[in-house]
Structure formats: C-alpha cells, structure tokens
C-alpha cells in the first residue's frame, strides 16, 4: 500500500462557515499528476483519511505533478473537521491520484453543461478551468451553480473570473436568498432555461447531493441529452482508495476504481434501487 506523502499547507482560505480551501506543497517528490475529477486520500495525523477531490493545482496545467495541490474541505466529521482546520505551515498526508476523473474528451465538439450543487463545485472547478483555458474544442459552455444560501457559494472570486470569460456562461441560484441577493432563487435545474445548448449534441458534468444529481440527469434526458454523455461524480464510503476495502460498492461498481465519475447510462439504475 502506498503511504501518505507529507505536504505542507501553503495557504488556507475560508470559503464558507464550514468549508476551507487549502493549497498544499509536497515536502519532497510530489504525487503523479491529477486529472479533473480524480481524488486524493487526505490524512489528518492520527485521525484518519478522507477521500477529497482535487479542486485545482499550481502551476496551472501541471496536474499537481511536483507542484501544488488545491483541495476544498467541508467539515462534517472528525477527519474532515481536522482537514478543514489546517493552517499555513501545518502538515497533511496525501495519497493519490485515485479514480476515473471526468472524461472531457468525450465532450469534444459538444455543447458543455457543468452543473454543480453545493460542494459539488469542488471536483468540477479544474474541469471548468480547462473549458475556460482550452482551445475551442467545445460548443457553448455553461456553468450552473446552486447553493443553499448566497453565503454557501464556493469560489466566488473564481465564479466572477469565469463569468468574465467569453468562453463560458455562468448562472447561479440559491435555495434561500439573503439581503442583497439579485440572482436566481430555486433549484439548479431551473437554470437550464437560462442558457443555450443543443440537447442532442450536449455533454453534461454533474456533481452535488445525490437527489440533485438524479433530478438534473432526469431533466437533461427529458430535454434530449443522451444518457451516456451525462457524467456524475458519486460519493460512497471509502477506506482505501485502491479497490481493496469493499466499502465503496454501488452494485457492480467499485466507486474508487470504476468511479467516482460514472455515466448516467450506468448510474441511473444503480441510483434508483433504494439502499443499493
């Protein structure tokens, strides 16, 4: 088994009341390059490990290889709380990259929809970065972001940068607006009416709570987007990341190995059977 590689926290930025983004620099040789959608097992000393998506890297384009990794962590339990609390100078262990990642090549020539709910924007951020920076391999690109409240929106600065780019359209919505909120209110699927795409020639990348992903995928299929061009990033318990612990099974799929990114053509049935 590979052991965690020590990384030093270079920067930590509070995103929301319970979520922090950290920039990590390897102490010694770094990990192999990450692709958007892949994840790392992050080790909080003595507490344990948690699977955390890669949300970016520096320098851009390096995939984190011998460079710096960006991760965004929400505190929901012991390990994630320890990771969320990381401060500059702290050390953390990282193993990876693990998992399949987004298949962006499958979207070439298509209109691209990126649909994120809450923390689901974290694994999608490096994908959007490729859409923004990449040459014109795609049709129209839209980024639809939903959050509970305006204060729960991640990467607000980055969202503004994307919105200023001619390559992507950005729309945001919240469940509960606060004072001063001028954007949309309601579920993220409602934003589909705000952007232009040609459903039969569209590829979608979706991440968020499972109910949100199910609703989004169904709506997209209803509008004529082919199921196999809708990719979701799924979450299950993971203890090893290497396909050996058995916890992340979703029917025939070992999510750490065959996922976390799974096509809706495969995922639909698996997410419809209760308690699979």
């Amino acid at each position: 088994m590979t052991v965690p590689v020590p990384h030093r926290v270079v920067r930590s930025t509070a995103e929301t009341s319970d979520t922090t983004t950290v920039l990590l620099e390897p102490e010694g040789p770094g990990l192999a390059p990450f692709r958007p959608g892949q994840f790392a097992m992050m080790y909080a000393f003595g507490r344990g490990e948690a699977p955390i998506s890669v949300s970016g890297w520096e320098p851009p384009g390096a995939g984190g290889s011998c460079g710096r990794l960006v991760h965004t962590v929400r505190a929901v339990g012991a390990v994630s709380a320890a990771l969320r609390g990381l401060r500059p100078g702290d050390r953390v262990g990282v193993r990876g990259p693990y998992g399949t990642g987004w298949d962006l090549a499958a979207a070439e020539g298509c209109d691209v929809l990126v649909v994120a709910g809450g923390l689901g924007l974290a694994p999608l951020r490096p994908l959007v970065a490729e859409l923004v920076d990449g040459p014109g391999r795609f049709g129209s690109c839209s980024v639809l972001v939903g959050a509970r409240t305006p204060a729960d929106l991640l990467y607000r600065g980055t969202l503004r940068t994307w919105a200023a780019s001619p390559r992507v359209a950005v729309a945001t919505t919240v469940d509960r607006p606060g004072p001063g909120w001028t954007g949309d209110v309601g579920v993220v699927t409602a934003l589909l009416d705000r952007v232009a795409f040609h459903p039969p020639g569209t590829a979608a990348f979706v991440c968020g709570p499972e109910v949100m992903m199910r609703a989004t995928a169904r709506e997209l299929v209803h509008r004529g987007v082919p199921a196999q061009r809708i990719q979701l990033s799924l979450e299950r318990t993971m203890h090893c990341g290497t396909g050996h612990c058995g916890h992340c099974q979703l029917g025939p799929v070992l999510l750490c190995r065959d996922g976390p990114v799974v096509g809706w053509d495969r995922a639909e049935r698996l997410l419809t059977v209760r308690e699979l």
Binding site: M1, P6, E27, F45, D90, G93
Partner: peptide, 17 residues
Amino acid sequence: RQWSAERGTDGTLTARE
C-alpha cells in the same frame, strides 16, 4: 499494520510503510 507515521516537534510528518 499497514503504515506508521511520526509527527516531529516541529510539526513535520513522516510516514513509513
């Protein structure tokens, strides 16, 4: 046991398989 890790007084982390 799969690995052991040490935390130095200076905060450094090492892990040994």
